[in-house]
């Protein structure tokens, strides 16, 4: 689904495009423009500030300085990191780092954001606040979030729940 793995059989489609047939730069560009990633351990680039981490993906998209600036400041404000733009990941708390990761995932206006255990390294209070923020973004910005998780908090908030068991879909329920 993320275009990171090659299917052993069959094909994977995202927004009507067969991502399993894409290779090299095409696949990189597709991930950059259509998929946002949020990882369990934030995975921000440690030598870049919060602003630069979010700006990075826009630079890869060759957007102008003005547009980058506008979008980065706007998204950081949305995720509640106003005033922390110039801090490096090491100077931010876990929750704040994950917010930067969310901002990075969203800033390119992707079709879908894949979040891998995004609350695993956060305390329940911070995790809950982050999920509320994601839910709000989903509802206001109409961005689809797909989570892989064991966290009941996420499952409780999800609109559709697909339970996997031994690599196969065990249950698929729409709420």
């Amino acid at each position: 689904m993320s275009g990171l793995d090659v299917p052993t059989s069959g094909k994977a489609y995202l927004a009507g495009n067969s991502i399993s047939d894409m290779k090299g730069n095409d696949l990189s560009d597709y991930r950059r423009d259509h998929i946002g990633f949020i990882f369990q351990s934030y995975n921000l680039i440690p030598v870049l500030t919060a602003y630069e981490n979010v700006e990075y993906i826009l630079l890869l998209q060759n957007l102008s300085v003005e547009e980058r600036k506008e979008r980065v400041y706007s998204i950081l404000k949305e995720v509640g990191l106003e005033g922390r733009e110039n801090r490096r990941p090491g100077e931010l708390s876990g929750g704040q780092q994950q917010r930067v990761a969310v901002a990075r995932a969203m800033v390119s206006k992707p079709d879908i954001i894949l979040a891998d255990e995004p609350t695993a390294n956060l305390d329940s209070h911070t995790g809950s606040a982050l999920l509320d923020m994601m839910k709000e973004l989903n509802e206001t910005k109409k961005i689809t979030f797909v989570f892989s998780t064991h966290d009941q908090m996420i499952m409780d908030r999800a609109k559709r729940l697909v339970i996997l068991k031994d690599g196969r879909i065990d249950r698929d329920e729409v709420r």
């Binding site: 730069n25 990189s28 560009d29 991930r31 950059r32 990633f37 680039i45 890869l60």
Partner: peptide, 16 residues
């Protein structure tokens, strides 16, 4: 290695 993996995952080209 992990960082490069992340960079490539989020859309960084190999040439970069």
């Amino acid at each position: 290695m992990y960082e490069f993996g992340i960079m490539k995952a989020i859309g960084t080209r190999a040439t970069f």
